[in-house]
Design a protein around this nucleic acid. Structure first.
Length: 480
RNA sequence: GGCGCCGUAGCCAAGUGGUAAGGCCCGGGACUGCAAAUCCCGUAUGCAUCGGUUCGACUCCGAUCGGCGCCUCCA
């Protein structure tokens, strides 16, 4: 079944249903990283949000075509890669140095995504592989009178595009009042005009172009690659809130200036992340990469859950306490999953209400989807899962769910895990040593040798295996 | 200065005109040889503050206080 999903559209500032250009297919462009250093958890929040977005559409029965750019030419990349080169180094050497840096950090970035179970995009275009498309786009804008060349650089003439500012909801006067521009750097007609193609300065890598040696501006790659790989009408384009202006506003100017019609229907932006109530900054000592956290013993999937369990349009306050809460919440869901995979009847005590498990399950499924379809309301979607767990645990303590009912519950856990990627079915087998210890404890218990039984249980615990005795005398186990 | 967002229990967090979801933590009880897991009970007379609109407001309006973002290359 295909579900209609609504998202907050930055263009209209309203939550609107996403109606794809082609029924059942979603074209998604997400702004990727500039690969000159490790991604920090703030960056990763945005990529996790985009993964949530994509997985929700996929789980909702849509086919998603996802394109994420890798920015591998940019000021900071040049700054960090050209240091070891002499002033008269040939262009080839400059490109090679740049490539060495960007390939290294691209690989690291993709590893980080894999660690967080972020699904790779269908297209991961590198900006440097699309220089000809960018040049053609700039030429096109030039031909339409929307761009002009100055001293080897090309600029966009904002004045000729009346809708400029529609995404960021900025008016021209407001922009100019607040503008703080390094005026010495470029020779622009208007202060708000932005650069499409940058003429090369000494010491910078360059490409040949109709305007001489130079390199692309920041925004042009997304327009060129997005149109090349996803086409002239894109369903969803997303990124962090900081990209609304100027990056996405300028993308609209470039693409729509060239196409002559609306390019992207739905613009979706993820909020920022703070750390322990403060802005993340190296100077505050609260700047973390994924690898920093993993080195501290943090489970990457707990980080994934901690981030996904907050709404994407709200500032997220990352904390180690929150991470602990996430770990414990996950334990509960995973324990429930394991229970549903087993036979049931684990607890006891009073029971407040009889219920129909299948009806209760359907109710939870609909609540889950209603929440996800309403602008990815993950806190509410998770609440639907937890209340289901409460009710079915209570039921199962007294009247064991049937195999069929368990199967249906597991199907729902799979369905929700297709989005959250945090409580999958685990197929691990116990090794012979652990099996033998469990048997030894069983024998000790049968002999009422409690001291020995406890000793073996402690030994297993030290190995990371926690035992759970069931009502019927059997013993379950799980990883600590 | 311009535009905009946020302030709900110890922590995280949904709800946004009809009387406070969910998670973590905490206390009591049940089950258990003891645990673990699980269940039951309890934990905000109140949603930053002060006014207003309304039969009724956390939810709408106004003001105030506090925190944050964007206003040209930052996810």
């Amino acid at each position: 079944m295909r579900r209609t999903i609504s998202l907050f559209n930055t263009l209209t500032r309203r939550v609107e249903p996403v109606v794809p250009v082609i029924e059942g297919q979603i074209s998604l462009y997400t702004c990727g990283p500039t690969v000159y250093n490790y991604a920090h958890i703030g960056n990763l929040r945005t990529f996790l949000f985009q993964d949530l977005l994509k997985r929700t559409f996929a789980a909702g029965g849509h086919q998603v075509m996802h394109c994420m750019n890798i920015t591998d030419v940019e000021d900071k990349i040049i700054r960090d890669s050209q240091g070891g080169l002499s002033a008269d180094a040939p262009n080839e050497a400059r490109h090679a140095a740049m490539k060495a840096l960007t390939e290294r950090f691209t690989a690291i970035f993709l590893e980080d995504l894999e660690t967080l179970r972020v699904r790779p995009a269908d297209h991961l275009p590198r900006a440097t592989h699309y220089i000809p498309q960018m040049i053609r786009l700039v030429q096109n804008l030039e031909a339409r009178g929307l761009a002009y060349a100055r001293e080897g650089s090309v600029y966009y003439r904002i004045a000729n595009l009346p809708q400029y500012g529609c995404l960021a909801h900025l008016d021209r006067e407001g922009m100019q009042a607040g503008a703080s521009v390094d005026a010495d750097e470029y020779e622009r007609d208007a202060i708000s005009d932005f650069v499409l193609w940058k003429g090369a300065k000494p010491g910078e890598p360059w490409w040949d172009s109709p305007w001489g040696q130079g390199r692309p501006g920041w925004h042009i790659e997304c327009s060129a690659m997005g149109m090349e790989l996803l086409g002239e009408r894109v369903d969803i384009h997303s990124g962090g809130v900081d990209l609304i202006f100027p990056h996405h506003e300028n993308e609209i100017a470039q693409s729509e200036g060239c196409l002559g019609h609306r390019w992207v229907n739905h613009w979706v932006h993820g909020e920022f992340l703070m750390v322990e109530g403060q802005k993340m900054a190296k100077s505050l000592g609260n700047f973390f990469t994924l690898r920093d956290l993993v080195a501290k013993g943090v489970d990457p999937i707990a980080l994934r859950y901690a981030i996904q369990s907050n709404h994407y349009r709200k500032v997220l306050n990352f904390s180690f306490e929150g991470l602990r809460a996430a770990e414990n919440a996950l334990k509960r869901i995973r324990a429930f999953r394991k229970r549903m995979e087993g036979e049931g009847q684990a607890g006891g005590g009073p029971w407040k209400e009889q219920l129909d498990p299948m009806a209760r399950l359907e109710q939870a499924r609909e609540a889950f989807w209603a929440a996800m379809a309403d602008d990815l309301n993950t806190p509410e979607a998770l609440a639907a899962i937890f209340t289901l767990i409460n009710d079915l645990n209570a039921m199962d303590d007294h009247v064991a769910l049937t195999r069929e009912e368990r199967g249906a519950v597991l199907a729902f856990l799979d369905e929700s895990d297709a989005i959250f990627a945090a409580w999958p079915h685990e197929t691990e087998n116990l090794d012979a040593e652990v099996e033998a210890l469990i048997d030894a404890r069983r024998a000790a218990k049968a002999a009422k040798n409690w001291a020995e039984a406890d000793r073996v249980r402690d030994q297993l615990k030290a190995m990371g295996i926690v035992l759970e005795d069931r009502k019927d005398g059997s013993t379950g186990w799980r990883r600590a």
